[in-house]
Nucleic acid binder design. Structure first.
Lengths: 336, 336
DNA sequence: AACGATTAGCTAAACGTTCCGCTGGCGCAA
DNA sequence: TTGCGCCAGCGGAACGTTTAGCTAATCGTT
């Protein structure tokens, strides 16, 4: 691999001049410029980003740590963030924690040794596992996505999960359902907790009782949700509607419904969180709470770039509004 | 950020000793080792990967260029590759080309300046756009995934798309369908081309005519497939079965079927390429050709690591077998 | 003619590591 | 006591850049 030194020698100039030509950082006479460019082409020279990074103290790399890239919500988020960062001249180091906190820790360490210029993190641990994060964020620009961490005073871009759950549940109640259950995610994660609270609040707002046996909480995974739904829906006292708190879990619920030979929405109405292309392609087309993924991604990128560029601004927590998308998976109750 | 120099000073040893302690690259007496470790902890020292990379000429970074991370096939591929690379001590720079060849070129350039140790590429351009790639691969370990490039003699891990399409189409024919159509991807991509050939071959193997108006080819995108399917299925001379060549396009086709108020599988049978969680959750559960994504990813990683480690081995093209997964979206014809 | 101002391009010192080759202190044999 | 081998630990040169400061040439002013 040719270096600046080789280019300099071939062009008969100093390496400083080569550097100036490559970066346009100083005036170089047209004549020398031509000689340098010629030499660059002859040698197929390309600047060494590693050496440059060492000297400048910036790598043009950011770390993106997501909890589960297999979830369309995160897929889309990664998609948006990667594109936006690319536009801003940064490349993205992708880290997938698989909802495993130990992996997350490890990734954070690796990203630091790679000297990334910043990190966008969807944290996966419980709140009290993040003592060190605030300190870290003083050295390393850090923005949280999707899942905020209480009281740490970090930049974050999340959605109003409470409002989403409230709206979804209210939709079921508006349709006349009274026996409404929920399949909810892990309670230590802010969005899952907020969704549960939103669900509760919607019921309570109408003076309805919140039945503990109608709340199934577990991981965000398909199998667990399927088991929970199967149990819930095969009991004698079956709910007529279910609010499902995430994407993967929705698959589990739909499979449970199919397995039990039930019909959605005739036998059970279902409303979920997260819209995605498939939700609109199959029978029934799903009624869901659409998360503003693109906006979240853009907000996270904006916050991170600001923190990288400037003297640390006040922490900002952007909370975006989700929107209910009504399709065919919820029917009025009782059926006419 | 503390450096080795700081650690050395605090521990009262030389930089070389710190390096030896950190890397275990030379014997260090227990006493000094203890002093060094103590100093490291006190200062919160973490090695600088950039400086290390510069010195060693290796970055422990690989580039992963995919055509469309939004497609569950690639999502899963990214997931597998990221995990496997991580296990091998490499981090992954993710690049999403959005099926745009110019972006791909650009990413390849960026990856080179970041001095990645290798690249896994799902190419998106036409074959003749890749003249330079062979030369590049002599300097930079390179492995193709999903889409091979003819005659370049590069490492690749792909699936036998011809066999998959042949099997899928034969399944429709076995069920008695005779008017079988296909919605196929861009013809300049090997998998799409192979699928079309497999489709053709299956028909020809039974002496059936291949009707050009029953072949709709375009991009891999949902909208185009939906339009194509709508056109195809609303004509008087409607096919009774459709072979759909990819994931996104399957959504378009299913939406077209719903829009036209047709029933799958009663009015149209459908078989697709790519299995994914949602295919098994909705009505109808889709009959698809399952691609061995995990195996592809692992093969690509294995090939790349071999190429990074050793003196360039002979190029290897691993071709993996897909498998038909029969569910509910294909009915016999005529219906009993 | 002499002086400073301007400026194109150069020299050389970093950036934080790794690792080659050297030093100096020690133990042991003669 | 001297000489020798051994080896823990050290010094310093590289890796390929960027950039502060310098030099020498050119120019316009007085």
């Amino acid at each position: 691999m040719a270096t600046m030194k080789d280019v300099a020698r071939l062009a008969g100039v100093s390496i400083a001049t080569v550097s100036a030509t490559v970066n346009g950082s100083a005036f170089v006479s047209p004549e020398l410029r031509a000689r340098v460019t010629e030499a660059i082409n002859r040698l197929g020279y390309a600047p060494d980003g590693v050496a440059r990074s060492l000297k400048k103290g910036r790598t043009q790399l950011i770390g993106l740590i997501v909890a589960d890239i297999t979830n369309p919500f995160f897929t889309e988020l990664v998609h948006v963030i990667e594109a936006a960062m690319q536009d801003a001249g940064y490349s993205v180091l992708l880290c997938d924690t698989d909802e495993d906190f130990e992996k997350e820790r490890n990734y954070l360490r690796i990203l630091q040794t790679h000297r990334v210029d910043g990190v966008i993190l969807a944290p996966t641990g419980t709140g009290d596992a993040y003592q060190g994060l605030k300190t870290l964020s003083e050295r390393l620009p850090l923005v949280l996505v999707d899942r905020a961490l209480p009281d740490l005073g970090l930049d974050a871009a999340t959605v109003d999960s409470f409002a989403g759950a409230f709206e979804a549940t209210s939709h079921l109640l508006d349709l006349g359902h009274r026996k409404v259950a929920t399949i909810i995610g892990p309670r230590h994660l802010a969005p899952a907790r907020d969704r549960l609270n939103g669900f509760r609040a919607a019921l309570e707002a109408r003076g309805l009782e919140v039945r503990p046996d109608f709340i199934r909480s577990g991981s965000f995974r398909e199998e667990e949700a399927m088991a929970g739904a199967q149990d819930l829906l095969s009991g004698a006292d079956r709910p007529s509607a279910v609010f499902v708190a995430n994407n993967h879990m929705m698959i589990g619920v739909m499979r449970a419904i199919a397995t039990l030979q039930l019909n959605c929405p005739k036998d059970v109405s279902v409303v979920g969180i997260d819209d995605f292309p498939w939700a609109n392609a199959f029978t029934p087309r799903l009624t869901v709470v659409r998360q503003p993924v693109e906006e979240i991604g853009r907000a996270a990128v904006r916050l991170l770039l600001a923190r990288i560029a400037g003297p640390a601004p006040q922490p900002v927590h952007e909370v975006l509004r989700p929107a209910l998308v009504i399709r065919d998976s919820c029917a009025p109750f009782p059926l006419q």
